[in-house]
């Protein structure tokens, strides 16, 4: 009971903070576009305008369609990244040669913003689905491989030694010891890879999509509707955070709890 009332208290104070933030935003809008004249009314979104825009897009189905389409893309792209990234991660962590030579390259490519790949994507795959997938995959694969490599590298060596003295072969060692030992670290790393995939999706959609959140954002720009742009930005944040919290945080928490690593 104590704990529950604490959570409610925290939640209330967070909501209050948000409400205050919106209030300040409205005040800045009203003053800045009105008596002070700092901005033209079309250059600054207002809370009310954003809500109206959200309502309109939700009402005519744009929002749902765009979100579903974006999510579908990112899921396919992230799934491909998981496969390629895991293979690369295992390669880099199982061989000293690749660890010395390939890992620095992966680190380097990883630091490249995914939008830099858009020209390649368009040249190789044209304007369409394939090029967006390409940007997602290239934007998150290396992060996945580094997450896997890092998680495997930090597995306590004593687990491996213990398993070896009990006669574990290379395959059992990876499947039954290294993988379960690395899992919490992998999940923590994948959280970051997910955010890379989500950002890469936006880079791709902004450039070459006909439907999706990124496209809806750009169409807002084209119609000079700053409220729509802001509304879509909010939805992008919301979806990104929701997946992070609902999927990755829960999986990670579960894995840690099973191992007695969290309270």
């Amino acid at each position: 009971m104590q704990k529950k009332s604490m959570t409610i208290k925290r939640l209330c104070s967070s909501l209050l903070f948000l409400a205050l933030l919106v209030l300040v935003w409205q005040a800045v809008y009203s003053l800045g576009t009105g008596p002070l004249g700092w901005w033209k009314p079309y250059a600054l979104p207002s809370p009310l305008g954003v809500v109206r825009s959200l309502g309109k897009m939700a009402g005519n189905g744009t929002l749902l369609q765009a979100s579903a389409c974006s999510l579908r893309r990112v899921l396919i792209g992230f799934a491909i990244s998981l496969v390629i990234g895991t293979a690369l991660g295992l390669l880099v962590s199982s061989s000293g040669y690749f660890n010395r030579n390939l890992k620095p390259l992966l680190n380097g490519i990883q630091s490249l913003p995914s939008v830099c790949w858009v020209p390649f994507a368009i040249l190789w795959f044209g304007l369409g689905e394939a090029s967006i997938l390409f940007v997602i995959v290239i934007g998150s694969t290396f992060s996945v491989s580094l997450a896997i490599e890092n998680a495997i590298r930090t597995v306590p060596p004593i687990y491996v030694k213990a398993a070896q003295t009990m006669g574990a072969g290379k395959l059992s060692l990876y499947g039954r010891v290294i993988w379960p030992a690395a899992l919490p670290g992998v999940l923590a790393g994948l959280k970051q890879s997910w955010s890379f995939a989500w950002r890469a999706l936006m880079s791709g959609e902004v450039m070459s999509a006909y439907v999706g959140l990124g496209y809806t954002l750009m169409s807002g720009r084209d119609m000079a509707d700053i409220n729509q742009v802001t509304a879509v930005m909010l939805v992008i944040i919301l979806v990104g955070v929701l997946v992070d919290k609902l999927v990755f945080s829960n999986l990670e928490k579960h894995a840690l709890k099973k191992r007695g690593l969290s309270s």
Partner: peptide, 30 residues
Amino acid sequence: PGADRVVMFQEHALFPWLNVLENVKFGMKM
């Protein structure tokens, strides 16, 4: 290394993702 010379370490080296019984059965599974 091999199962004919099992080592018991200073730290227990048990696997935290398995329970007591599963830990004990690990080597026999191998």
